[in-house]
């Protein structure tokens, strides 16, 4: 019991026996999955494997039918809502870039900064010096410092993806969930994004869902293969791509 507890508290994310079904369709089927502190993990899997549903469960958007989901070994994610979970320190990037289009790039970051989130705090909030520093650092990291005053709507697709990642960084989460960060990016942007994510992974735990195998190769991290709502294989990319079942799933039987 004690050792198990220690085991748990050492993990950032701990999913055990999670199942979710929609109208009889099992999106997740007894999924178990652990992320260690400081780890970057890539998740791959064919369409409908349950990648997005898994993210929904972790961020409180979807409630699992059964199973437990713990954050930092102590917070039961199945009982909290999105705002709670975000404030605990889990950031999520959507598949399609979603930023606040009618705000400037800078304001997008300002809104995401870790800090008080209540109605009256924001009503009377004032811009502070240390905030400005943090914002500049984030803007540097995501390579948008020279576009800080631009409307987010006017950014290119790839820049929006980075802005969204920047917003996650500003939130200063201990775990980042990143859903298909390079979808629709040019090759150059893809490489830059890989570098960016590796930078971020130095002091955050990151889970990346991606289809793009060369991008996963670039990341060079442990890979989990999902299929029909549960884990099919886990290991390095070379290891899993040698796995018979993974080949079956991807190439068809």
């Amino acid at each position: 019991m004690n050792t198990l507890h220690k085991e748990l508290t050492r993990t950032v994310l701990y999913l055990d026996g999670i199942s979710v079904s929609f109208d009889g369709f099992k999106a997740l089927n007894d999924l178990s999955f652990v992320v260690e502190p400081g780890e970057m993990r890539a998740i791959i899997g064919p369409n409908g494997a349950g990648k997005t549903t898994m993210m929904d469960v972790i961020t409180g958007k979807t409630r699992p039918d059964v199973g437990s989901a713990l954050f930092a070994g102590q917070h039961d994610l199945t009982k909290l809502d999105e705002a709670d979970i975000a404030q605990l320190g889990i950031g999520r990037k959507f598949q399609r870039p979603t930023v606040f289009e009618s705000h400037t790039v800078r304001d997008n970051i300002v809104l995401s900064l870790a800090g008080k989130r209540s109605v009256f705090d924001t009503l009377f909030a004032r811009a502070r010096e240390e905030e400005a520093d943090r914002i500049d650092r984030v803007l540097d990291t995501i390579r948008l410092a020279d576009r800080a005053g631009m409307m987010a709507a006017d950014l290119s697709h790839g820049q929006k993806q980075w802005l969204e990642i920047g917003m996650l960084l500003a939130q200063d989460p201990s775990l980042l969930l990143v859903d298909e960060p390079v979808a629709g990016m040019t090759d150059a942007e893809t490489v830059q994004t890989a570098t960016l994510l590796k930078e971020i992974a130095r002091d955050h735990s990151v889970v990346v869902v991606e289809h793009d195998m060369s991008f996963v190769q670039d990341l060079g991290v442990m890979v989990t293969v999902l299929h029909e709502g549960s884990v099919l294989a886990e290991g390095s990319l070379d290891h899993v791509s040698a796995d018979e079942r993974v080949i079956d799933v991807y190439l068809g039987r």
Partner: peptide, 11 residues
Amino acid sequence: DAESRTRFIGY
């Protein structure tokens, strides 16, 4: 502009 984004950054 993006209700769920706002929610997922903790508001």
